[in-house]
Design a protein around this nucleic acid. Structure first.
Length: 742
DNA sequence: GATTGGGTCGTTTTT
DNA sequence: CGACCCAATC
């Protein structure tokens, strides 16, 4: 026993062995935070604490799964009984148990952002409001903000100052939409992400017996990545831990990068105020990175005013300087990075999986995909569109969701006429009107469609649909998830529709659905009691990109800095370090915003173990024209003595005095803007829709090229074309400034 | 119900 | 630029 403690340093050991009372572990980047957390849990279990009494909250499911397996290695199977997972999934679990107290059914649906926006859209349309004034994305983010600040629809409508503000902004009915949105979600027996937190808070606040039950249950509460919790999450945890006061949080204020989602850096900065007997542990030894990386990143983060004082140090080697790359354009940048990766691999024996490319926005991945493909570098992208966001997957999941929860009108809308079965928009509109009129659900109306005045053709279609769904509902209760899912995919005809679509996109859609089915197969074959489709769905809605990405194979990883949190790599390439990109042009207005961007840069730097490449381009395509860029202010914050300038052509040494980077590099002046004028006879031509493999085309930017492959449908038709000058390029046809020459 | 021609609008990060 | 929406048309 306690064998695992020997790997820890004294400070880490103290943090692990402090059992009773509140504690705050401030863990600098690379200081072994995860080992402290896992060891602490193992230590608790070793000291006779029942895993059932431990609640451990993490940021991603993946982090939770990883920690669980590490703990299992230390203490054995007991680890399975831990309550460990993300805030959202743990609270969803509590809400499902206590659903009757808040008037929900156990099988409530969880709406992702898209689902929520669709609900808002249908409300706006049904109420005959102008969708351009009430944009779903705007409404959604405002509602989310309000919910995270405890301003319910009721409170909102009762406050005249909100109302008059809305009128001023020309959106007088916002409050209305807010109320209708919450009502609609409730009626659909659905919760959005914020509801999972808000309803948990409500539940505990209004039901002392339930609060007491969970306070007694969770004798020990631990939180990972505490700097990224928002006020709502913090208050819930404070409630839960109030009885035993064994609340232990781990975090690093310097890595707080989610304020846009309501994360509040004050939680960690002011944690002390809430707990006078708080014990603070600082982990300041970095085990991950070289001396250069630790000092250089420290140098950068020191520019922030709002932070807890820390003295990070490491016993590791001095290491290499940070290599700075200056590129002419985004494609030049990705080319140069690709070359560097190949060179490092060749000369220093790295593997592809040792590299990560970190960028500020998902859109930046494209140039790298092209460059890596051209250079035969295998890569994996984390993020962008996750598997479960794809249309075909959402379509089929909507069937499952509806079968589990027939109150979910959004799911019904999605499936009712897919595949086409003669229940079009008009029919659906009528059903909705009747449903509202007689205070029924749309599904109720469909089940009793004979009592309504509708053409016989439609009645037959609706009856068939209702019969089919009813048979699915019965099947879902009797058979396991795989049998049900496969039956649904086959009976509805989705499988054969996708199978018959032989376009490239169709093939991948078919593959995706197949993959979904085999994922469900794995779920059924795994060792668990409840193998129903409902249980499968509960896990799916809260999966994140980081959870679903496969880690197999020797590949370079591409991702945003945000998704890199908690990870480490031997070689890190941080790209696109330009003003208005990193830092983002949208968050440089206030000091707080800039500081968060700086923390983001700090997170990027501290992911590296051995080497860092940093790059920026002097010009970049942005919605149709080339814009001049200036290097990021953060580059200038790194002391030149940590920077290797030899990658910049022409070669220039930094002057003795610390000059600004702009002077050193002599970059092109601010605000230069080279717009590009399309030639008039290059306008997209209908003929382009008849583009065939083998044809020759002339593109007004890339010159003459040969079509290698055509794929996709109208709005999304793309061609892979080989241009002599620049090589292979994927081009969207509908708006391409291009003509066929023979 | 599918196709097509014509528009608009977003451009940060995600549980 | 490129994704997405809508209304008119077949």
């Amino acid at each position: 026993m306690n064998d695992y403690l020997k790997d820890l340093n004294d400070r880490q050991k103290e943090a692990v062995e402090h059992i009773e009372g509140p504690s705050l572990i401030i863990a600098g980047a690379g200081s072994g935070k995860t080992s402290v957390l896992t060891t602490r849990i193992a230590y608790l279990i070793d000291h006779g604490i029942d895993p059932f009494n431990i609640l451990a909250l993490t940021f991603t499911n993946k982090a939770a799964a990883e920690m669980r397996s590490r703990i299992e290695m230390m203490v054995g199977k007991d680890a399975r009984n831990l309550w460990m997972g993300t805030f959202h999934s743990m609270f969803a679990r509590i809400l499902r148990i206590e659903c009757d107290r808040i008037g929900y059914t156990k099988d409530f649906t969880i709406y992702d952002t898209d689902d929520s926006k669709n609900v808002i859209k249908s409300i706006v349309n049904e109420e005959q409001m102008d969708i351009k004034v009430y944009k779903p994305s705007y409404i959604y983010s405002k509602i989310s903000l309000l919910k995270n600040n405890f301003i319910t629809a009721g409170k909102y409508l009762a406050d005249d100052s909100y109302i008059s503000e809305d009128i001023e902004m020309g959106k007088p009915r916002f409050g209305d939409i807010y109320l209708k949105y919450t009502q609609r979600c409730f009626k659909n027996s659905a919760m959005d992400f914020d509801d999972l937190l808000l309803k948990t808070h409500e539940l505990l606040e209004n039901n002392p017996d339930i609060l007491n039950k969970y306070q007694q249950k969770f004798k020990f509460v631990l939180i990972d990545e505490f700097q990224d919790t928002n006020i709502l999450q913090y208050l819930i945890v404070k409630y839960l831990a109030a009885a035993h006061r064994n609340l232990s949080v781990v975090g690093d204020d310097s890595q707080s990068i989610y304020s846009f989602r309501g994360a509040n850096i004050k939680n960690i900065l002011e944690f002390e105020k809430d707990y006078s007997d708080l014990k603070i542990f600082k982990l300041e030894q970095n085990y991950r990175s070289t001396k250069t990386i630790v000092s250089a990143s420290d140098e950068v983060i020191k520019n922030n005013k709002y932070r807890l004082e820390k003295k990070l140090w490491t016993a590791n080697d001095e290491g290499n300087k940070i290599k700075l790359i200056k590129a002419n354009s985004e494609s030049d940048e990705s080319d140069k990075i690709a070359q560097c990766i190949l060179k490092e691999k060749r000369e220093n024996g790295y593997k592809y999986e040792d590299f990560v490319v970190l960028y500020r926005t998902n859109a930046q991945s494209r140039a790298f995909e092209e460059a890596f493909t051209k250079n035969n570098i295998p890569y994996r992208i984390v993020g962008s569109i996750s598997f479960y966001q794809r249309k075909e997957i959402k379509d089929i999941l909507a069937y499952f969701k509806f079968v589990i929860n027939p109150l979910d009108e959004e799911a019904l809308k999605r499936i009712v006429n897919y595949p086409a079965r003669g229940i079009g928009d008009n029919t659906m509109q009528k059903l909705i009107v009747w449903a509202r009129e007689f205070n029924m659900t749309v599904w109720d109306v469909m089940c009793k469609i004979g009592e309504f005045d509708l053409g016989s053709r439609h009645i037959i279609a609706i009856n068939d649909f209702a019969m089919m769904i009813k048979s699915f509902i019965i099947m879902a209760t009797e058979k396991n998830a795989y049998e049900t899912a496969h039956h649904i995919a086959k009976t509805t005809g989705i499988l054969s529709i996708l199978y018959e679509d032989r376009t490239i996109e169709g093939l991948s859609r078919y593959d995706n659905v197949k993959n979904l089915l085999s994922a469900i197969g794995e779920f059924v074959n795994s060792d668990r009691d409840d193998k129903s489709i409902g249980t499968f769905l509960q896990g799916v809605s809260l999966l994140t990109d980081a959870d679903t990405s496969d880690t197999s194979g020797d590949k370079v990883t591409l991702m945003t800095v945000h998704s890199a949190k908690g990870l480490e790599f031997p070689v890190v390439c941080i790209v696109g370090l330009e003003e208005n990109l990193f830092p983002s042009g949208m968050s440089i207005d206030t000091r707080e915003e800039v500081e968060e961007e700086r923390r983001l840069f700090y997170v990027a730097l501290t992911r590296a173990r051995i080497k860092i490449y940093v790059s920026y381009a002097v010009s970049r395509y942005k919605w149709g024209s080339i814009n001049g860029c200036e290097p990021s202010r953060f580059l200038e914050e790194i002391d030149p003595k940590f920077i290797d300038y030899s990658y910049i052509q022409p070669f220039k040494q930094p002057v003795e005095e610390r000059t600004t980077l702009k002077q050193t590099l002599n970059i092109i002046p601010k605000k230069s803007k080279i717009s590009y004028q399309p030639a008039s006879d290059f306008r997209p031509d209908e003929d382009l829709l008849n583009l065939q493999t083998g044809m020759e085309v002339e593109h007004n930017r890339f010159g003459i090229g040969k079509v290698l492959q055509v794929e996709g449908t109208r709005d999304n038709m793309k061609a892979t074309i080989f241009f002599k000058e620049i090589g292979q390029k994927l081009i969207l046809i509908k708006y391409a400034k291009m003509r066929i020459i023979n």
